[in-house]
């Protein structure tokens, strides 16, 4: 499965936050903060309903790079800033680009945008090993 990578290579990954994804992610991760599962609490918190766990959005960015390098076990680092929440029924497009390449390490920059063109992650950095 040897493939070569170059600075400037790009990749795209699209994920939909289906209606119950925040609840499924809560079950799998243990993050049951009510702002993720209870629309009423989401409203009281000023979030206009529930929002997806930021760490699920992070996981999708990691997934995008894992697919690009062909092995999720090669992910070595992720660094994100959550610009805007993802909500149920949002469709998030992850666009990545290789910004650095060393002997055994590939660094990508990933931006995630919802269906309205709003950034949910800006300039996330994900690194993977190539050795």
């Amino acid at each position: 499965m040897a493939r070569t990578f170059q600075v400037g290579d790009t990749f795209t990954h699209v994920r939909e936050c289906d209606l119950y994804r925040p609840i499924y992610y809560a079950g799998a991760s243990g993050d049951f903060n009510p702002i993720h599962i209870d629309p009423e609490v989401g409203k009281v918190a000023g979030l206009n309903g529930v929002i997806l766990q930021g760490l699920c959005t992070l996981a999708w960015a990691v997934e995008a790079v894992g697919l690009f390098v062909g092995d999720p076990g090669r992910i070595r680092k992720v660094k994100v800033r959550f610009s805007r929440p993802v909500r149920p029924e949002d469709v998030v497009t992850f666009e990545g680009k290789v910004i650095a390449l060393e002997a055994d390490r590939l660094t990508t920059e990933v931006t995630a945008t919802n269906q309205r063109g709003e950034a949910v992650l800006k300039g996330a950095i994900v690194e993977a090993s190539l050795g």
Partner: peptide, 16 residues
């Protein structure tokens, strides 16, 4: 906690 949101996150994985 109602006003808490996740701002930034860094994770480094040294092994599987």
């Amino acid at each position: 906690l109602l006003m808490l949101v996740h701002g930034e996150q860094e994770l480094e994985f040294l092994d599987v």
